[in-house]
């Protein structure tokens, strides 16, 4: 009995020792030398493999960064989810200075809610924007607007976009959005745009993509940009952030100072902002009306 235990312990021990020796030598011999900096960079990256950087996963991006650093610069590379802080950290690891890039976020550019752009037909098929887009102009009849089938929701790895049940339009949750651009790529009508978050999160954009002439656009959607150009005129002369092209206004985020003056002048309320717009300028009233005068007087008296 003792002998059996002894023999088996010895023989198994020998086998184990032999196997570990083999493993040890193989591990030594076939070891893949990897730059230790790749691991360090990959640790800083969020690890969500969202593809926002344009490389296959976070590790692929880390490898690219290290290679780029060896060539002297990692300028132009950005991990949208982690932001400029992480890029600065990576820069430190790789011994390079990195300029901070402005934080950005996704913005949906369609205001065709159920009320403003009533559905005229019913789509019956797979719940995919790409399929519906290839078939027809959509239930609302607007060939530029959101179809509300949620390809963007499926594409988002961060749960930062959802379809509002009332309006049937996508809504971006700013806190969660990392502006990786997956929704921008997937949207067949390109109504989602990556724009700078803006100072104090103040940003203004045209909430429409319609290139139709005013009357045709208004026919399908009451919130359409009709290309009237009022906002262009309203924009301060020094700034001129708004341009009108093909019956559609566009606010250049680089120039826009988010003063909000254009918002109240839009006849279709197609300009959207993340803040309360300033009160509209009081219209110059006819001279015959004495009331403003008296009011002013009253005010003056009070001040006295």
């Amino acid at each position: 009995m003792d002998g059996v235990i002894l023999y088996s312990v010895i023989s198994l021990g020998l086998v184990a020792a032999g196997a570990s020796m083999i493993l040890f030598f193989i591990a030594k011999k076939f070891r893949v030398e990897e730059d230790p900096r790749i691991d360090k960079v990959a640790d800083i990256l969020p690890g969500a493999n969202c593809g926002g950087c344009g490389y296959p996963g976070c590790r692929g991006f880390a490898e690219t960064l290290v290679k780029a650093a060896d060539n002297g610069s990692i300028e132009g590379f950005n991990c949208p989810p982690a932001g400029s802080e992480a890029m600065a950290q990576i820069g430190k690891v790789l011994g390079l200075e990195v300029e901070a890039s402005e934080p950005t976020t996704a913005v949906v550019r369609c205001g065709g809610t159920n009320e403003l752009a009533p559905r005229k037909t019913e789509y019956d098929g797979p719940s995919k924007c790409s399929v519906s887009h290839a078939l027809f102009s959509g239930e609302k009849g607007c060939p530029y607007g959101c179809m509300g089938l949620g390809d963007c929701v499926v594409s988002c790895s961060f749960g930062a976009i959802y379809i509002d049940e009332k309006t049937m339009l996508p809504v971006v949750i700013d806190e969660k959005c990392v502006s990786c651009g997956a929704c921008v790529k997937v949207c067949p009508r390109k109504i989602i745009e990556i724009r700078p978050v803006g100072r104090k999160s103040r940003r203004v954009w045209i909430n429409c993509m319609s290139n139709d002439k005013g009357a045709a656009a208004m026919k399908v959607c009451k919130a359409a940009c009709i290309g009237c150009g009022k906002c262009v005129k309203e924009c301060p002369e020094k700034i001129q952030a708004i341009v009108l092209d093909n019956f559609l206004a566009y606010i250049d985020p680089k120039k826009c100072i988010a003063c909000g003056k254009c918002i109240p002048v839009c006849p279709t309320k197609a300009i959207k902002a993340t803040f309360e717009p300033p009160a509209p300028k009081p219209k110059p009233k006819p001279v015959e009306n004495p009331e403003p005068e008296s009011e002013k007087k009253d005010q003056d008296e009070v001040n006295k």
Binding site: R119, K120, T121, E122, D124, G125, V131, L135, F136, E139
Partner: peptide
């Protein structure tokens, strides 16, 4: 009623 639009 609304027309239904679907693929063939």
């Amino acid at each position: 009623s609304k027309f239904i639009v679907s693929l063939s």
